[in-house]
Amino acid sequence: MNIIRIALLSLLLPVAALAQPIKAVFHIDDPSQARFALYMAQDHLKLKPDMQITLVAYAAGVDFLLKGETDRDGDAYAPDVAALMKQGVQFRFCAATLRFRELEESQVLTGVTFVPSGTMEILRLQAEEGFVYIKP
């Protein structure tokens, strides 16, 4: 009887693991990736509304998080970023990039969180919080 229970439990464990929300970190270090990353986040949330998504930007990848920035078609990023924030998506901005590029925090969209290092934040989310890595 115990062997049957153990066998049944071993079959259920993977199902239990799937019941947890998926957590994904999107790595943005190039401004050409930003629009696609925003579309991906929107699509992922349509498929899995409880998914936890964090976009981490550093180097030139931070540009889409600056006030007034637009994509190559002239469409502003801010409305899409704000809409995703309302759905729980988090945006993290590398403070080292802020200093290196001599930017001011006031230039960054409201609601964006600053982290000491973008690359370290990506590593931390994967190692400590179980996020899966996505490079758009």
Score class of each variant (00 low, 15 high):
Gly68Glu: 13
Leu12Gly: 12
Gly88Tyr: 14
Ile28Leu: 13
Ala76Val: 08
Asp80Tyr: 05
Ala127Arg: 06
Asp29Cys: 07
Asp80Ser: 09
Leu11Cys: 09
Phe100Arg: 15
Tyr77Arg: 00
Glu121Trp: 00
Ala37Asp: 06
Thr110Val: 09
Pro116Gln: 06
Ala76Gln: 05
Leu103Ile: 03
Gly61Ile: 04
Pro136Ile: 08
Pro49Arg: 15
Val115Ser: 07
Thr97Gln: 07
Leu66Trp: 10
Thr119Ala: 04
Leu98Cys: 08
Ala57Asn: 13
Ala19Gln: 11
Ala60Asp: 13
Pro116Thr: 00
Gly111Gln: 08
Ile122Ser: 00
Gly118Tyr: 14
Lys67Trp: 06
Glu121Tyr: 02
Ala76Tyr: 15
Asp71Trp: 08
Arg99Gly: 03
Val62Lys: 13
Ser10Arg: 12
Lys86Thr: 09
Thr119Glu: 12
Gly88Pro: 01
Ala82Trp: 09
Ile6Ser: 11
Met120Leu: 09
Arg92Ser: 07
Thr97Leu: 13
Thr113Arg: 12
Gln33Trp: 14
Ile134Glu: 12
Val115Leu: 04
Val81Ile: 03
Ile122Arg: 00
Tyr133Asp: 13
Leu103Trp: 10
Ile134Arg: 06
Pro49Met: 15
Leu38Phe: 12
Asp29Trp: 05
Gln126Cys: 02
Leu125Tyr: 06
Thr119Pro: 14
Gly74Ala: 04
Asp30Trp: 04
Gln90Val: 13
Gly130Tyr: 01
Ile122Val: 15
Leu13Arg: 04
Asn2Leu: 14
Phe91Glu: 02
Arg72Asn: 03
Ile6Pro: 12
Leu66Pro: 02
Leu55Arg: 00
Ala96Phe: 07
Glu121Val: 01
Ala127Met: 09
Ala82His: 04
Leu84Met: 03
Leu47Ile: 06
Leu109Ile: 13
Phe91Met: 02
Pro116Val: 00
Arg101Asn: 09
Pro79Glu: 00
Ile53Arg: 12
Lys48Asn: 11
Lys46Pro: 15
Thr113Ile: 10
Lys86Tyr: 15
Ala37Trp: 07
Glu121Lys: 00
Asp80Glu: 10
Ala127Ser: 07
His27Asp: 11
Phe91Pro: 00
Phe36Glu: 11
Gly61Glu: 02
Tyr39Asp: 01
Val108Tyr: 01
Ala127Tyr: 14
Ala59Gln: 05
